[in-house]
Simulated scan of single mutants.
Amino acid sequence: MTLFDQLGKSPDSGKSRQLVTNSTKYGLSLGSYSAEFLELTDDGLAAVSDEASPARQLRARFRCAVANIDVFNKLYESYLNNRLPSQAVLIDKARELGVPEGDALECVETFIVNTKFIGVLRSVGGAERLLGVDAVIDDYLPKSGSSQRSGIVKSDVRAGSPAAAPPEAQHSDTDGAGYDDACFYISPIGDEHSEARRHADLFMGALVEPALSEFGLRLVRADQIGDAGMITGQIINHIVHSKLVIADLSFHNPNVFYELALRHAVRRPIVQISRLADRLPFDIGQIRTVVVDTTDIYSLVPQLDSLRAQIGAQIRAALEGAEVENPLSIFSPNFWSSMPRS
């Protein structure tokens, strides 16, 4: 009664009883609404205590809001480190997990609210993604003894955290092993919050990843495996060995053209995309390119499905094609046979 008096609520109202019941089911507190006393669990105390470290608080909140709830935990594990699918897909998944038809929508809505509230559902790379708890602690939460990072949300998950780079990004070999399920995304990246970065995130999250999903390939972007704008050994390995490369030629970025030329030299599958505003140079303008008009959001949004389908069609054609044509193969077909051999 003291508690609800402080809350300004009636202890016997239906809403108050529901609060107690929900708190108990989430593992935040002990005691039913008919009990004389209520008490916080260890996780409940850590979840709300100002004295708990940010990392301990997040882990406690995660256990209460997601991990200890079977259907939420299975949804989370199903899409961990991936973009969050559409609500319809999540509802179908909830039904597969045994949620009754009439409860599936509310289940999915509550799952999204919970993961968003505790910070494991974040906008990364132009799409909403479910991140690992350790990745959130490493990349988003303030470090012990430091307040400078508090409240900062990065627009990309960087190398060094569990969600920073997919498994194939950790390979440093040069024989092609580990790249058979990789699609390397050559793209202008730019500084955080720059127009180029926002463009890259939008194209990756809204167009490229959805189009790629049916092919079983994992998308890798340069800033996931190294500093943006730097040509590293790992990046070159991805350019050379990945099963597919998708090149975004927008902004006429020099690094993009350099990396595209490397891919041409190994004559492996490429898909080109570009903004309508950027006129392509003659040499690569003859290669089929998916062109995206970004000048008007009101005309862009209705075309998203069509653009994804176009990119998907180009991916399929590139992967199925027996011959990979590019300016080298067209204008210098003897390039490879004339290469000096050591």
Rank of each mutant, 00 (worst) to 15 (best):
A135Y: 01
L262R: 09
E77V: 12
D92I: 02
P188F: 00
N237G: 14
R263I: 11
A228Q: 15
R221P: 07
D223T: 03
V324P: 05
R263Q: 07
R267T: 05
V120T: 07
L58H: 06
A35M: 05
L121C: 05
D138P: 03
A60Q: 01
F111T: 11
L7W: 09
I246F: 00
Q18W: 12
A159W: 15
S150P: 11
E109A: 12
Y76R: 01
R56N: 12
R17Q: 10
P210E: 04
V240R: 10
C183G: 00
V113I: 14
R341Q: 04
A165P: 04
S144E: 13
D283R: 04
I137R: 00
F335I: 12
A94L: 08
S187V: 00
R263G: 05
H252P: 03
H238Y: 04
H264A: 04
D223K: 02
N114H: 07
F4A: 02
I236F: 13
F4M: 05
F335L: 12
D278W: 14
G160A: 09
Q286D: 07
E320I: 10
I273N: 01
P281W: 02
R56E: 14
D70K: 05
R218C: 11
I246E: 00
K15G: 15
G27D: 11
D223N: 11
I236T: 10
G216C: 07
D181T: 08
Q314S: 15
Y79E: 02
E320R: 14
T41Q: 05
S10A: 04
T289R: 05
G14K: 15
T21L: 14
V124Q: 12
I189R: 01
G8L: 11
R275D: 09
F117H: 14
V157A: 12
Q170M: 09
V153D: 15
E101S: 13
H264K: 03
I297W: 11
I287L: 15
I189H: 01
V240H: 08
K243V: 06
S10D: 07
A47H: 03
P142R: 00
I225R: 03
K25R: 15
L130K: 01
G178I: 01
L131I: 01
V301M: 13
R308P: 05
I231G: 02
F4G: 05
S32Q: 04
F4Q: 06
D70M: 03
I287V: 15
E323T: 14
V153M: 15
F4K: 02
R63S: 10
P302F: 02
S172L: 08
A318S: 13
A88Y: 07
S53F: 04
F335C: 07
P188E: 00
T110K: 15
H171N: 13
N81T: 08
V20Q: 12
P210V: 06
S144Q: 14
N237D: 13
